[in-house]
């Protein structure tokens, strides 16, 4: 239980919104600018403009509001696509990701997949030869602020993180996949886990299904790792796990309802 003096902080709308996400992405972005030059900022601007344009179109029609979740997704996409990616492919991929992954469901909070995951999976599928399955390395320490910010603000649930580590390292140990242990020590793994898998909306929505969602991601990552590159492994494992998250939730709901029926008649 938290000390009650801290509750106004924990319940503050700034912590519930995209501030921790954007703050957590600052260091990986800085590192990327430092290593690969300011071209990454151009990609952030391009992808961000496409996302915003679609958000404006959809929310105008529906008379809704939208927050900064599109900008967070744009930064993640820009960080994970190669520097050589053609502009038209980024436009196409981002459009697909943000429309199909986010906006057709009714905006943030009603989507089931993370728009960045949909975008990346689309680009990897459609343009296999363009190097989307390679990503520049990210040191693990750049993700430490994100880990703290997202877990303290309650956005990334520790149950998902624990399940993912257990799945990855456990199956890696059982099947003797040494790459699994190496993967857990990369910044890329933590970036995908914290921002894409443990995203509060795209991950499972009950405390009972959250560890299993993480576990599924970890197990799938270990299995895919034996055939693919790190980034494709992580993105497809995140995609599959998020697709199954509503099923895990439905199972948790069924168990809850069954226990309640037995107890309450």
């Amino acid at each position: 239980m938290m000390p009650s003096r801290l509750t106004p902080l924990a319940t503050h709308p700034l912590l519930r919104g995209q501030l921790p996400v954007l703050a957590g992405l600052a260091l990986p972005l800085l590192w990327s600018v430092w290593g690969d030059g300011p071209a990454v900022l151009g990609r952030v601007a391009l992808v961000g403009a496409i996302v915003l344009a679609w958000q404006v179109v959809f929310t105008r029609i529906r008379r809704q509001g939208f927050g900064l979740e599109g900008i967070s997704a744009a930064i993640i996409i820009a960080l994970l696509v190669p520097a050589t990616a053609p502009v038209w492919q980024l436009v196409l991929g981002t459009t697909f990701g943000v429309v199909i992954g986010l906006l057709v469901f009714g905006g943030y909070g009603r989507n089931i997949l993370h728009p960045a995951v949909v975008t990346l999976a689309f680009l990897m599928f459609s343009f296999a030869g363009e190097g989307y399955r390679e990503a520049s390395a990210l040191p693990i320490w750049t993700l430490v602020p994100a880990l703290l910010l997202l877990t303290v603000s309650g956005q990334a649930n520790w149950r998902v993180l624990a399940g993912a580590l257990l799945g990855l390292l456990g199956l890696g140990w059982l099947q003797a996949v040494p790459e699994a242990t190496d993967l857990a020590q990369t910044g890329l793994f933590w970036l995908v886990l914290l921002f894409l898998v443990a995203d509060p909306v795209a991950s499972a929505a009950t405390d009972w299904s959250r560890p299993f969602h993480g576990l599924l991601f970890g197990v799938l990552a270990t299995l895919f790792l034996q055939t693919g590159t790190a980034i494709s492994t992580l993105v497809f494992a995140a995609l599959m796990a998020a697709i199954f998250a509503p099923l895990l939730d439905a199972m948790a709901i069924a168990v809850n309802a069954r226990i309640r029926e037995r107890r309450h008649g």
Binding site: G109, G154, N157, A205, W208
Partner: peptide, 28 residues
């Protein structure tokens, strides 16, 4: 204000589990 606004949907957060009545799955 931009950082705090949203689409009006329920965004899951750890806090909901502690604020919920006993044995209730708050987000669903």
């Amino acid at each position: 204000d931009w950082l705090m606004r949203g689409s009006g949907a329920v965004i899951p957060n750890r806090l909901q589990e502690s604020a919920a009545p006993p044995f209730l799955l708050p987000v669903p």
